[in-house]
Amino acid sequence: MSGRDLLQTQLERGIAALGTSLPGGAVARLLDYQELLHRWNSAYNLTAVRDPAEMVTRHLLDSLAIIPFVEGATLADLGTGPGLPGIPLSIAAPEREVTMVDSNGKKVRFLREAIRSLKLTHAHAVQSRVEGVEGSFDCITARAFASLADMLGWGGHLLARNGVWLAMKGRHPAEELDGVPPGFRVEGIHLLNVPGLDAERHLVVIRREG
């Protein structure tokens, strides 16, 4: 089997273990994204993960694990880096408007190339600090770039009324829960079982009230 065939088998098994159904062609697009990220990474240092099989686990499957909690027609991925979880979520639901935000110019250049080459017509890349973003989104995702208090302090205004914020964390963030500001309610904290990943993953689901 070729290297890509092995990665495809790993990805398909992981998707099956997650119980996730994806649109036709999604697996090929996810692997195209992984290849592009691997290629750019040598020059741009976009992620500390170098091994393609580890990318499938730590980037693709880790992102896809939150699909059951994503809702609404518009999503913002804050501090997206090289598009995680934004690109996999956009591939999984290509009709959703996905806005990926990062302040790092190299990462945003990569994002724009990924959006173009993968033909993600409803995905957008914005170079900005979180505080500078404008708009209102049904769903916001963020991968552990700050405490819950700081995340919501910087970006909470972007969440639509009754919208859902999905904070991707490693270990259970028990000590951060008291910092959730008024107007937001922790709806649940879910242990995520990412196939092949020997590390803790939790998803904090926060609802904007009103």
Rank of each mutant, 00 (worst) to 15 (best):
G81M: 04
L46V: 12
S128K: 10
G72A: 07
N193P: 00
S42I: 11
G24W: 03
D51P: 01
V126H: 01
G14L: 10
V126Y: 01
G14E: 07
A17H: 02
T80M: 02
V49F: 09
G153A: 01
L152M: 03
T121H: 12
N104P: 03
G135Q: 09
L158K: 07
D32F: 07
E12K: 15
L152S: 03
W154C: 05
T80G: 02
A199F: 10
D32W: 07
R50C: 06
H59E: 04
E175C: 00
I67E: 09
V49E: 14
A76T: 02
I66L: 12
T121N: 13
P85R: 08
L152R: 01
G24I: 06
K119R: 15
G183W: 01
A123Y: 03
S117C: 11
A167D: 09
H190C: 08
L46E: 07
T99G: 00
G81Y: 05
A48S: 15
C139F: 00
N41M: 10
H202M: 09
V204E: 12
L75E: 00
V133G: 01
V126P: 00
L191G: 12
L22N: 11
P88F: 12
A76C: 10
E200Y: 03
T141S: 08
C139D: 01
N162G: 14
V180N: 07
L192V: 10
R4L: 13
V133R: 03
D62F: 06
G153F: 02
V194Q: 09
L75G: 00
H124S: 14
G188H: 09
L111I: 01
R201N: 08
L89K: 05
V49N: 11
P182C: 08
G188V: 10
G81C: 08
H122T: 15
D178S: 15
N162H: 14
